[in-house]
């Protein structure tokens, strides 16, 4: 049985290359019982969308209202 460290590693790797059949099977088994790793999995596509949008978002990092958030 995969632990969460290993499961998130496979979820991360799946962002970069297809997993093997055995890896997909073991990951699916882990995800069926682990809510936290399911959460991690749903957040990965968001992280990617955010990173790509970040490259295009015209935000001045030196704007005076940066710093403490409300």
């Amino acid at each position: 049985m995969l632990n969460c460290d290993r499961a998130t590693f496979l979820i991360s790797q799946a962002q970069d290359q297809p997993l093997s059949r055995a890896e997909r099977y073991r990951l699916a088994l882990h995800l069926s019982i682990c809510k936290a790793c399911r959460g991690f999995q749903t957040q990965m596509p968001f992280l990617r969308r955010a990173a790509r949008a970040f490259a295009k978002a015209d935000v001045d990092p030196q704007a005076p209202d940066s710093g403490e958030s409300k």
Binding site: A55, K56, A57, D58, V59, D60, P61
Partner: peptide, 10 residues
């Protein structure tokens, strides 16, 4: 590749 200045700075 960077249109955003915050991204370029990072």
């Amino acid at each position: 590749s960077f249109k955003g200045r915050a991204a370029l700075r990072s």
